[in-house]
Design a protein around this nucleic acid. Sequence first.
DNA 1: CGGAATCCCAGTTGATACTG
DNA 2: CAGTATCAACTGGGATTCCG
Lengths: 112, 112
Amino acid sequence: MRNILDRIGDKWTMLVLMALAVEPRRFGMLMRVVPDISKRMLTQTLRLLERDGLITRHVFATTPPSVEYRLSPLGCSVLEPLHALAQWAEANFASITFARARYDDGLGRTDP
Amino acid sequence: MRNILDRIGDKWTMLVLMALAVEPRRFGMLMRVVPDISKRMLTQTLRLLERDGLITRHVFATTPPSVEYRLSPLGCSVLEPLHALAQWAEANFASITFARARYDDGLGRTDP
DNA sequence: CGGAATCCCAGTTGATACTG
DNA sequence: CAGTATCAACTGGGATTCCG
C-alpha cells in the first residue's frame, strides 16, 4: 500500500494525471503541457502509470508515429481524491506561505 | 503551490501526519510507529511540517527531556483529503496489484 | 515523433558518533 | 531522550545520443 501512495505522491505523477484529466493527449503535447518535465521522466512516469492500469496507451501507425495516452476508469477514479487535495492546497496556500515566512524569520518558537 | 503538494507527497510526510492523527506523540514514539524511518529523516520531516504550520512542537523540561508533537488545526484539516486518498489506495489495492502483475508478465500491451 | 540506452553530476539519505 | 554534525554511499534525473 505504501507503494501505491509513493507512486501517486511522485513529483510528476499528479501533474501528468491532471493533464490527462482534461483530455487524452499525445506524448509531445504532454511535454509541452507539463512544466519542466524531461523526455526521460515523462516516459518513465507514463510507463509506471500504464503498469498500474491508471492510463492506457494507444499507438497510431502514422508517419511519423503518434501515441495517445488516456485515463482508464481506474485513473479517472483517482481524480476525485486528487482534486480534493489540490483544492486543500489552493485554499491553504496563503496560510502555509505565511507560516513559512514567520518560521524563517526565527519567530517560529515564540508563541503568537 | 507545487511546493505544497511536493511536501505532502514526500515519502515520510503522509506517514507522520497519519501517525499524529491518532494522537499527539513524542519523538521516540514516532520512530517506533513510522516504519523504517531514520532519526535524521524524522527530524527533518518534523521541522518542515512545523515550518508549514501543520504541526506544533511542545518541549517538556523533564529529565530526560521529552518533546511532543501534535497536529495544528491546519494539520487536522489536511487529514480529510489525505484519508480520501488513503481510502482510494486501499479500495483499489487489488486492482493495481493485479494490473502490475499482468504488465510484468508482458501481457500489458495485448488488449484484454 | 516517440522512446531506449548511456553517462554522469548533485542532491538525498543512512550510518555513525557526539551533545545538552 | 531528542536531537546535531559529519561523511560516505546511493540514486534520481538531466543531457546527450541513437533508433524505428
